[in-house]
């Protein structure tokens, strides 16, 4: 589903991604770890060309992303959901309008069908009561969940999550993790999940990578990574996370 080869991205002289290569199979959940500022968000943004990488190759759904023209790119983007680290809800629109936004533009649903979809997706993130609120009336965690609802409402084939559970309480965070898992099962959705939340990663990950110094430095299942004797990993997993229960 996703193949990335030798991706490089620098801001002026500051090299963020040096040489990143990775592969995600169809229906697989890949978790991306890495310390703050290692370029995880940049990596996700390059994948949908919100940022233009300096060099490298990105293949999504058999299409060479970096050589698509804007029309082909938009067709591909309709198949991709993106949850921003900051949720990025449209301030000037209510929650309902936020969720409707992609539906109105890319699908021919009747108003009733749209309403149905909005309600069902809000139920999934357990925020049905917020349907007529404005984003400014929501808490950070609620915004995140609405952001998640907005990105999955079109049932994309590929979801890119930028820290889906950061800022949520442990219970909601677990619910969201199971939701991601359920989406994978029911829609055969492929996901790339950037997270600092080990609990979430343990629930959803089929495989994980650790980004460091602009490269994919480690790769494996969560137990493999957490039980590794490598000094960096040992240090990383003992300090980055406060494990619950």
């Amino acid at each position: 589903m996703v193949e990335i080869y030798n991706l490089k991205k620098a801001f002026n002289s500051h090299i963020v991604l040096d040489d990143v290569s990775l592969k995600v199979d169809r229906g697989e959940n890949l978790v991306v770890f890495g310390r703050s500022g290692t370029g995880k968000s940049v990596l996700l943004k390059c994948m949908v060309r919100l940022m233009e990488p300096d060099s490298g190759k990105i293949i999504i759904d058999d299409k060479d992303v970096l050589s698509l023209d804007i029309k082909e790119l938009n067709n591909l983007r309709k198949q991709i959901g993106f949850l921003f680290q900051s949720a990025a809800l449209y301030d000037s629109m209510s929650v309902r309008q936020n969720l409707e936004f992609p539906l109105i533009r890319h699908f021919d649903f009747s108003p009733e069908e749209r309403e149905q979809k909005i309600i069902s997706v809000l139920e999934k993130v357990s925020l049905l009561e917020a349907i007529d609120k404005m984003p400014s009336e929501l808490s950070g965690g609620m915004r995140k969940r609405i952001g998640l609802a907005r990105s999955i409402i079109t049932e994309p084939k590929l979801m890119l999550y930028d820290e889906p559970t950061t800022g949520l309480d442990p219970i909601t965070s677990k619910e969201i993790s199971y939701l991601i898992l359920e989406l994978q099962k029911s829609l055969n959705m492929t996901s790339v999940v950037v997270t600092h939340d080990l609990l979430c990663a343990e629930i959803i990950a089929d495989r994980a990578i650790v980004l460091n110094d602009g490269k994919v430095q480690y790769e494996g299942s969560i137990p493999e990574l957490t039980s590794s004797n490598d000094p960096f990993l040992k240090n990383f997993f003992s300090h980055e996370f406060i494990k619950e229960n």
Binding site: K45, V48, L50, N74, N75, R77, K78, I80, F82, F84, S86, A88, L89, Y90, D91, S92, F101, P102, R105, H106, T154
Partner: peptide, 21 residues
């Protein structure tokens, strides 16, 4: 101010990835 804050809070990016220009 309006578009500026949409830009810096990634709302414009969000619109772009949802394939709306």
């Amino acid at each position: 101010a309006e578009l500026g804050s949409m830009r810096v809070t990634e709302q414009i990016d969000a619109m772009e990835v949802s394939a709306v220009d």
